[in-house]
Nucleic acid binder design. Structure first.
Lengths: 214, 214, 214, 214
DNA sequence: TGCTAAGCGAGACGGTACGTCCCGTCTTAAT
DNA sequence: ATTAAGACGGGACGTACCGTCTCGCTTAGCA
């Protein structure tokens, strides 16, 4: 039962918005409590009361932006993975390049911040892809004897590496290529998966562009 | 033809040393020109004259520490990769965790700094592993149709990811496992590579512990 | 008819006590509502409810300390004046040097506070000495044609000036010297007053130290 | 031999000017380094580098305003004293009431500040009047056996007391009255001084308003 | 060998942002 | 209805460090 004067929610919103604006325009290196306060027309103590450090503030602002991404479940392993990774990449692409890397570097040394960073920004896509892999195993698309953690790591590291350090953001066909390369090694019967995927895609295309059919 | 008073080389050395000391003790976030100047008993302008920014200074200091790592060439693909990655990991382990990530984050936005960072700290191991892969293809150990860039990326990302973000440094058996997992997918005949490796290893062991032989 | 929850009188006492403690230890400049609240284990609103400003609080606390000083009435003009002034000086000496000056400076601009300050801290001694002078005139010790206000001012200003700004507190012999200088001009028969005073003093001494008498 | 970058004198001037403006408009209690910095378009460190505390700053600003007051030397003791005191009062009247008292209260506890305050703001007029008294004695206008320090104290305290605490500023006729009261006791031949003064005044008036003469 | 000027060391500067103290006020729950 | 209590929105504090500027000295290369 919290007592005392309640916090003004408008300040929360204004500060988070201003934080995102600064991150977008100038990057994490230029993120300054003072500048955020100016933009949000708030005061520094009001910000410090809510987020004890710049890192907490940035984490909260980015988490608010990324929000919850839906996990696709089409029944098609290849589709799920491609689309799922695409969804997360799309989310990360909304963040100015370099911001995540700088923020992580600033958080890495403090366990609490590091955990928050990972749990907030990295774990959701990872969990989603992990879920997809699980379904794929249940479905019989993936070998049950494969270390799913390793597969997960390889996919995740690809995304994270590019997100954090990629010159250019990961292109869609690169994602496809990576997934294919990986699955061709770990899949029970990759050609069947490809066939399945093509069938679904054609059905989908036909549903949307029936005139193209002969 | 440089004229005027020559630069005092003792200052260069003292500043680099002090920079490494600060990086080791406090991390990149606490790396301050003022603090380096204090420790090196130099003045700030003397530092700024030599390295225009903190990033340049840190890059120079870390490059001086890492030095040149030799590229192993044993004729055994599996051994080369394992040992080579181990060499680079050993070099990176001499740098306080988080320093590289923070420095990179600080350099990423400026092409010149980014390139210097990559060329100085990341390219050498990458090039070395690339060379190993090339030799492996020539040797017939790797499929020629595989995108070596992709394989290189997957190995590099593993190292870099762990170096930059790993809680714990990458353990040797983890390296082995990753290489094995990767090669079992892209290798022409993985069992043969394993056999080759075993043969070499036993020869090596026998050379050192002949008494164990029946 | 006051309704609602009654005020806790312990808080009043604790706050005044804490205020005096802060004034004694740190001076008026360090007198902070927050610090007083901490010491008194009260809350700020509880203090603000009772005293609207720091000035009011300080005035109340000092008034409580000074309390009421008894006005001596020995029948001896010289004794009364010396002792009376001594009493007030003793009261002022219980206040850390500089506190009164700072408080006055803080009150001077607001008529209400200024008046309270004067009425609370400066008027009582002034009135007491005025009363003594009145009795002295009635008694025939002072010339009736003298402006008693002027005499009062000269004695008061002496005390106040020193209390507010004196490097050193006014010493007892200085008081005597001032009274003597003044009375020698306005007394009806100054030598007689001195004789009277001496007689009383000796009688008093004898009563307490009879053995010293030959 | 001071080395390093020289101080920008424009900042000194702007800050002192802004300080006086704040003191005039809002008083010492509202004197804030931050506000001064805003008005002077300077920064806080630039101010702190010059004046370590608000007290130092206020003292410097007031001293700059009061500047050096010329000591009149007309050969007429009465005129000198009246005009001299008038000059100092005029200077003090240029300072918002209460500012000096508050500043002094803030300085009193620190010997260095206290001494600076006295030496800067109170000693000059005192010294000037002392010089006048000296000339008056030489000229034979004042009794040589009078304690000039005492006379000086009486005049000074009159001014200082009123300046620091007076409700109303000291009026010109009050000054005249005080001087007259004092000189009638210590002058060698007071009526002669009055006559001398009147003669000079009339000559002066005539020179400026000849038409008024019959 | 002596002169001149470029480059150096040193120190202080103007300035941004920091994180904190204290202010005076507001809201809730209890008396 | 008024209190006690706690947290709030906010103004100002004094400091660390930034990157730069000005100085006087040192040292090479030219006369």
């Amino acid at each position: 039962m919290p007592t005392g004067r309640p916090r003004d929610p408008q300040i929360d919103a204004a500060v988070l918005e201003a934080t995102l604006a600064v991150l977008d325009e100038a990057g994490y290196g230029r993120l300054t409590i003072e500048e955020v306060a100016r933009r949000a027309e708030a005061t520094k103590p009001a910000i410090y009361r809510r987020w004890p450090t710049r890192q907490h503030l940035a984490l909260a602002a980015l988490a608010a932006r990324l929000g919850d991404s839906p996990v696709p479940d089409t029944g098609c392993t290849l589709c799920d993975l491609g689309e799922g990774i695409g969804v997360f990449l799309a989310a990360f692409r909304r963040i100015r390049p370099g911001v995540l890397a700088a923020l992580f570097a600033d958080c890495a040394a403090v366990p609490e911040l590091r955990d928050t960073f990972l749990a907030t920004l990295f774990e959701p896509p990872r969990a989603a892809v992990g879920e997809m892999l699980e379904r794929a195993v249940v479905r019989g698309d993936l070998r049950a004897d494969v270390d799913r953690g390793l597969v997960l790591d390889m996919l995740s590291s690809l995304v994270h590496y590019r997100v954090l350090f990629g010159h250019a953001p990961l292109a869609d066909d690169e994602v496809e290529a990576a997934v294919e390369a990986l699955l061709s090694g770990v899949a029970v019967d990759y050609p069947r998966l490809v066939a399945h995927s093509r069938a679904l895609t054609e059905a989908h295309d036909e549903a949307h562009h029936p005139a193209h059919h002969t």
